[in-house]
Design a protein around this nucleic acid. Structure first.
Lengths: 179, 179
DNA sequence: TGGGCATACTTGCATGAGCAACATGTTTGC
DNA sequence: GCAAACATGTTGCTCATGCAAGTATGCCCA
């Protein structure tokens, strides 16, 4: 079934037309990983070189912008960008220092805190958005046809049911989930 | 054209059946990111809980296993797992301390260093492989049909030409690229 | 042959992330 | 009501990573 690592002649094997199904699956997996790493890397690099706004920051801003009243509880925000709570706490520290975001106490639950978008944050988002979107387009979307797009949506929909109930703890791997 | 963040009523816009093409693309992008984060997160968590071997280590071992003589120059290894050279240096430090890997001087080019698989490294790989492969299968491959697989290969092939010539510096984002 | 430049790796430093422990506040069961 | 369990966010610590600078070696060409 392939996918086994101890198999150097796995890919260059004596197939004339068509690897085994397992090989195709391994290929798909590798392609998935490589595509992600490559595209994210390019995007991040561009962001750093351009007007900036790290991808994580961008992601936070987008999430806040779309939230009711432009604010979100810390936990909800952490979930939505798949970051640990402690990670989010400090990320918000940095963004608050930069003035893009503000903490607001939560009157309904006095343990809680809202993260709220500031005017400056909105401006930063609006300034960064075109570049970001162009990057996503240039490095990813523009290379795909409509049928590819539909196929991806379909496939990934099977992999990740949808806004899933988050079974266990918060998943690691901070990585940008908003458009 | 959507994909714009500053547009809360973007998706619920006045479309009766079918979002705009841009929305579909944004959806595909989000699905891609979320699928990656979710699957990698699950995989990593399992690895940690189980017999271990972080994904990066696994990735290194696989690459070495498949290399001629089970060894690879540092640079080549760094490229193949998309890690910066300094990152790889230290990763190998840790793995060497754990005994899974050994540095060997390079006789042809005395600047160079080989990273070589040790017996212990091979054993670790063989022990970890079934779990890893099962995880990849459980969290990703098993949810996809053959047509999904082919569609992914096709689409990602367009996004990342193939073993590309690596245009600029080493991309960040250490992430597992071997099976 | 030797100077200058490129290459391969390593090290110093700073950053961003997670886990575990904590302080505070809320809910539940009796 | 009150105590025990639970939830929310923050802090201490450690780890893994990247960039830039450093060191050693190789290569080219005068």
């Amino acid at each position: 079934m392939s996918l086994t690592p101890d198999n150097p002649d796995n890919r260059p094997s004596h197939n004339s037309a068509g690897d085994s199904a397992g090989d195709r699956r391994a290929t798909a997996w590798r392609a998935f990983l490589r595509a992600h790493a490559t595209v994210i890397g390019e995007l991040e690099q561009e962001m750093e070189e351009g007007e900036g706004l790290p991808l994580t920051w961008y992601d936070i801003l987008v999430n806040l912008e779309c939230a009711p009243n432009c604010r979100l509880r810390m936990q909800a925000l952490a979930d939505s960008i798949l970051l640990s709570r402690s990670g989010l706490t400090r990320l918000l520290d940095r963004m608050a220092t930069a003035g893009l975001v503000r903490r607001e106490p939560c009157s309904e639950d006095r343990r809680g805190t809202y993260a709220a978008l500031t005017d400056q944050g909105r401006q930063a988002l609006e300034k960064a958005a075109p570049g970001h979107l162009a990057g996503v387009d240039r490095h990813f979307l523009s290379k795909l046809g409509d049928d590819d797009i539909e196929a991806l949506i379909l496939a990934f929909g099977k992999v990740v049911p949808q806004r899933e109930p988050e079974p266990v703890g918060p998943v690691r791997t901070g990585a940008l989930h908003s458009l």
